[in-house]
């Protein structure tokens, strides 16, 4: 782990995500300003920062929920700055949400099935065809993978919070991601669930690049190889987890002065 940037990417290879001069204003508020960011294939990147630092806004700009008010977004070498979210899915960009966005009226299997179809196309098909059996099987298999095997046919509205968080990740995995963006996957999870989540994140295939927003330092600094620290809409520090642990500014901003470096 001495040089994490070499994992999964040849040195000097073009980044799969390239942000240049990204800014986003909401009225008079600068949620994000002047952010440059490069993420390479196979990387595990954590984006940290106190509440209101602009992390989720940055995610929304990358995913295409809204366009930036300044700067450019390049994904896999394509300028997607003005492309809507749905046009980024075929590139292999998927995401989860800080507050679960699931289909409460549908079963777990149907939620995942909709996610699989979303990536496969055929959204307007009012017919059930033979290939749907394969899509159904894929959906169930992903459900098993995120630990929801026993509740596949349960309505999502009846799941526990932890199960809904697992399904959030399943929904993003169903899109066969090349870039997976996780917005606080550990939010509201119990300690044991967080350990399981960390294991799952560490187990992801290297063909998937992961960007992670996380407040839980144990999860974030265990999974990430690169950390981007944001404050007031700007990137203030970049480095490895070790460097972040030792950085005084990080402590002042985020961990609070009382925290020891090795916690």
């Amino acid at each position: 782990m001495s040089d994490p940037s070499s994992i999964g990417a040849a040195p000097g290879a073009a980044p799969i995500l390239r942000l240049r001069g990204i800014g986003r204003r909401f009225g008079g508020v600068h949620a994000v300003r002047d952010v440059d960011l490069d993420v390479h294939a196979g990387e595990r990147r954590a984006v940290l920062g106190p509440n209101g630092a602009g992390k989720t806004t940055l995610f929304n700009v990358i995913a295409g929920e809204f366009p930036p008010t300044a700067g450019t977004v390049e994904l896999f070498g394509v300028d997607v700055t003005d492309k809507p979210a749905r046009a980024r899915v075929p590139l292999g960009v998927t995401r989860t949400y800080q507050i679960s966005r699931l289909f409460g009226g549908l079963s777990v299997a149907d939620n995942l099935y909709v996610a699989v179809i979303g990536a496969e196309g055929g959204h307007l098909r009012p017919l059930r065809l033979g290939k749907d059996r394969a899509f159904r099987a894929t959906a169930r298999e992903i459900g098993e993978r995120v630990g929801l095997g026993p509740v596949l046919d349960t309505a999502v509205g009846e799941l526990s919070h932890g199960e809904q968080r697992q399904l959030e990740i399943g929904m993003a995995l169903a899109g066969e991601p090349r870039l997976l963006m996780l917005d606080e996957p550990a939010a509201g999870l119990a300690r044991a669930e967080r350990v399981k989540l960390t294991e799952m994140l560490l187990g992801f295939d290297r063909s998937i690049t992961v960007i992670l927003i996380e407040h839980d330092m144990d999860v974030a600094l265990t999974v990430a190889e690169h950390v981007t620290m944001m404050h007031d809409g700007r990137v203030v520090v970049e480095g490895t987890p070790d460097e972040i642990r030792r950085n005084q500014m990080v402590h002042d901003l985020y961990l609070g002065r009382g925290h020891g470096g090795d916690e």
Partner: peptide
């Protein structure tokens, strides 16, 4: 199912490519 997905969460449906 896509129509029902939109009923439950239109934002997620956009992020899934719909």
């Amino acid at each position: 199912l896509a129509f029902q997905g939109i009923r439950d969460n239109a934002t997620r449906m956009k992020a899934l490519g719909y």
